[in-house]
Design a protein around this nucleic acid. Structure first.
Lengths: 194, 194
DNA sequence: TGTCAAACGAAGGGAGGCCTGCGCTAAAGT
DNA sequence: ACTTTAGCGCAGGCCTCCCTTCGTTTGACA
């Protein structure tokens, strides 16, 4: 299911609008969902025909909705990032460090198996500028608050923290427990010394 | 240049032997070098014809030396791991922690841009068993020594440490300085608390 | 219910990758 | 220098993917 609800899609860059007719909207959502799964499984270079097949839709319908691979990829990506932003917007009165840790944990669990997001942040291509901004807007204040409170080391930037945690999320772990152990190490590395 | 010298290639799994005739050996090495570069740049799914082109050799010659993609990939991969093992085999009388840190830093700098190694360890496919064993043989004693000396945390396995450091090496950093900062965080996370 | 524009799928041309058969070339050994 | 044969590239069959055209279907709205 596409994570974007009935609302519009106000964006910069390639803008793709959700169709109004029922069948078209159904296919649009099916394509978005299929693309999310296939991109996650095979990376950003996956076959568009495969995505259309998985969505149960003709390749022509894919092209009608998303004129280029870029359009499709950006739409999926921004959808993902928006969902991550919503998740992060619930601090719930936690302390400086706990709020940061909680958000980073959500980031990892959400971004796991989503290699596209990983690559996106790493490559810093133009098309990801919006997504990066949204992630920064969500997480950076948390780091700065923890740093101000002396709970997080001050010799690193939010970008650095993201890289470290992102690296953890990029790995394909065999068991959940291992991800937890590795993430715990990463978090200890982010903590203020002493 | 292929890192494997004139010696044989005693291995498990898919065994590919270096040809004896001069022209064949030349092409074999050129293919191995091209494959290393192309796999590093485009991932394990890169075009074999592209590799042959880069090696200045016909696609048929590639197939003659490496009957399947697996053969080619495994040969490149094991070559890489062997080189890493050689690099790691120079402890030079360092203390428990410094020896571990030094090896991990070498691991990162060597594995950078070598996504294939990253994926290899992550996926744990059968064909990488040998490579993983070699890496473990090289690095695990260093971790255990550091743990025994109370310098490294004891609630993680060597695998965990590798995952964390490997995640760092997988990212495409903009500047070297950032890699250092991120790696420093990871290392602090591996250190024993207090 | 009827009209009509929007949306659909089938089909196909072009490009490139995978893999193989075959006749030629040139390295190795005498 | 000559013979042998391992090794070579060419060329082509098959497949998948990208992207477009075109006639048909179907949802929206009066």
């Amino acid at each position: 299911m596409a994570t974007t609800g009935s609302g519009g899609r106000p964006r910069t860059g390639f803008v793709v609008s959700r169709p109004t007719r029922a069948d078209a909207r159904r296919n649009f959502d099916a394509l978005l969902d299929a693309a999310r799964e296939v991109f996650a499984a095979e990376g950003a270079g996956a076959s568009l025909e495969g995505i259309a097949r998985r969505a149960g839709v003709n390749i022509a319908t894919l092209y009608r909705n998303f004129p280029t691979r870029q359009h499709l990829f950006e739409t999926v990506y921004l959808d993902e990032v928006e969902a991550l932003g919503r998740l992060a917007a619930e601090p719930g009165g936690l302390g400086p460090w706990d709020a940061l840790e909680s958000w980073l944990r959500q980031f990892v669990s959400y971004a796991t198996t989503k290699k596209a997001i990983y690559d996106a942040i790493a490559h810093r291509a133009e098309m990801f500028a919006t997504g990066r901004d949204m992630i920064h807007a969500a997480g950076r204040p948390l780091l700065e608050r923890a740093q101000a409170a002396g709970k997080a080391r001050t010799d690193v930037s939010f970008d650095d923290v993201l890289f470290l945690v992102n690296g953890v999320s990029g790995a394909n772990f065999v068991q959940e427990a291992q991800r937890d152990r590795v993430l715990a190490m990463a978090l200890d590395g982010i903590k203020a010394p002493g």
